[in-house]
């Protein structure tokens, strides 16, 4: 169970997250839906340690953790960014194995084997030696998902996973998210795509524009 307790985040005078409480049971999918500027991405950035909230705590299975823990610490939250942010100078395989090798100290062979297994699972077999620019948008997104999964996170977050995809690909990423659910992966989807959220998520948390994102989700 992932819990967010009393998370408050301000930018200057403006309160973006106001005493927010969220609970996500293991293996479930939570979608956070709302218009741009409602604080969805800020929430995701706090959860992944890119922003530090003024107040509040994060708990995994009752144990508090610091999302902004120093580098080389254990991976708790994996993130698939809206624009994927693959490393253009590395091949698909290198993109995926870099962090497992450097951070998790996996052996090269083991890291590559795991990467190949995940690539196969997400229909990317044979793309190992390509560079990101040689892939389509949908393929780049799936590489980003594999890259996050290779770090063996406890929770996987997506920032606007459908925003750049055509309907067929949108369906495909939905299937991937549901297949990861079958493997008991806890997932958080930030999106403005209400239909996608309803199709995929176990629970949908709706936020409104102008209000600070706050209150209890349950």
């Amino acid at each position: 169970m992932l819990e967010l307790k009393n998370i408050t985040k301000k930018f200057g005078e403006r309160t973006i997250l106001d005493n927010l409480n969220l609970e996500i049971p293991d293996g479930q999918i939570l979608a956070i839906v709302g218009p741009s500027g409602a604080g969805k991405t800020t929430l995701l950035r706090c959860l992944s340690g890119l922003e530090t909230p003024e107040q509040g705590s994060f708990l995994l299975n009752g144990q508090p953790f610091d999302p902004a823990a120093p580098a080389n610490a254990e991976q708790i939250i994996g993130v698939v960014f809206q624009d994927y942010q693959l490393f253009p100078n590395l091949t698909v395989l290198q993109n995926i194995t870099l962090a497992p090798k450097l951070v998790l100290k996996q052996k090269e062979k083991a890291a590559e084997k795991q990467a190949e297994r995940l690539l196969q699972q997400l229909d990317l077999a044979g793309k190992e030696q390509l560079y990101p620019y040689q892939l389509s948008g949908g393929q780049q997104q799936r590489v980003a998902i594999v890259r996050a999964l290779a770090m063996e996170p406890q929770v996987l977050c997506y920032d606007e996973p459908t925003s750049a995809l055509d309907p067929a690909l949108r369906e495909k990423v939905g299937q991937i998210i549901l297949s990861l659910k079958n493997e008991k992966m806890t997932q958080v989807i930030v999106t403005h795509d209400m239909d996608f959220a309803k199709q995929t998520a176990d629970k949908v948390f709706t936020v409104n524009a102008l209000d600070a994102l706050g209150g209890d989700s349950v």
Binding site: F81, Q85, F87, N89, L98, L102, V103
Partner: peptide, 27 residues
């Protein structure tokens, strides 16, 4: 170099030095 590259490296738990050597300097 886009800020997103640094953030992506940070979320993958790479150290600043690793980010510089493997991702930023080649670019």
């Amino acid at each position: 170099i886009p800020e997103g590259q640094f953030e992506s490296a940070k979320v993958l738990r790479l150290t600043k030095w690793q980010t510089l050597m493997h991702i930023v300097i080649p670019q």
